[in-house]
């Protein structure tokens, strides 16, 4: 069976982002970009399934600017067999992405779709869920363990109270959490092979999707600067300050 993996090109987790001077957003003009870490985990899981023989083809999908082909090549270096870029310069929000992925699911008919649970730039945590709803498919989010056997996906989910065990019929949507696996580092020979793997570019219109944003960002500001703390001599002073200054009790 095929597995579709969604990979997003995001600001590298190491970068200290700055807000643009007009407060319209974050400045990503010259900043290092990487594959979303949860999507790396998704790719790793897909490739492991292929190595186990459960899956026959891994297709990586990315949506956005032309440079997303870099992210797809990385996915292919990890082990994806081919890549699809849905190219647009429009600001993409989770609902639009979910619609694009649904169109591709209809086209490719994968047995499994794996996404990262959220992207580290917007922290939305919506796309996988929306895709499942649009495609009317079962979903298991925050997966920390995945087993595919006898046409079913046995998933362990990390939830606030502990772990939840689900059994899903296929096709299904899975989103990955941190402890699902430790993604491999790609070797140079695999990077070289990835350059030759097929990469198709389509437009949202080709998939019949209108990706115009539905939500308008009004203003982006940095969090207030942390000011220096003070040392207090005793508990009484602490309580007084919490009441009068911090106003939290």
């Amino acid at each position: 069976m095929k597995v579709l993996v969604a990979v997003k090109r995001v600001v590298d987790y190491n970068v200290k982002v700055r807000v643009k001077s007009d407060n319209s957003g974050v400045d990503i003009a010259n900043v290092k970009m990487s594959m979303n870490p949860f999507d790396e985990i998704a790719m790793e899981e897909a490739v492991r399934l292929k190595e186990k023989g459960v899956v026959t083809e891994v297709i990586a999908v990315s949506c956005g600017v032309p440079q997303c082909t870099d992210t797809l090549r990385t996915a292919m270096a990890i082990g994806a067999d081919r890549g699809i870029l849905v190219e647009t310069t429009e600001e993409l929000q989770p609902l639009a992405v979910a619609k694009l992925l649904k169109a591709l699911v209809d086209k490719e008919q994968p047995g499994l779709v794996i996404l990262g649970k959220q992207a580290i730039d917007d922290d939305c945590n919506q796309t996988g869920q929306m895709l499942a709803a649009l495609a009317d498919l079962p979903q298991a989010t925050f997966a920390s363990k995945v087993d595919i056997a006898e046409g079913k996906a046995q998933i362990t989910r990390e939830v606030d109270g502990g772990s939840e065990y689900l059994s899903l019929s296929l096709p299904a949507i899975i989103t990955t959490d941190l402890r699902l696996n430790a993604p491999r580092y790609v070797t140079l020979p695999n990077i070289m092979k990835a350059k030759k793997k097929p990469l198709d570019i389509v437009k949202p219109e080709d998939l019949g999707v209108n990706v115009s944003p539905r939500i308008k960002t009004l203003r982006v500001v940095e969090p207030p600067q942390r000011s220096a703390g003070t040392k207090v001599p005793d508990v009484a002073t602490l309580v007084a300050k919490l009441k009068a200054e911090a106003k939290v009790i």
Partner: peptide, 17 residues
């Protein structure tokens, strides 16, 4: 990198962090 991989064959199977 290719020259290095020839000189130190172990590099070929190393993942790039």
């Amino acid at each position: 990198v290719e020259a290095a991989m020839k000189r130190v064959p172990a590099l070929e199977h190393c993942g790039i962090k």
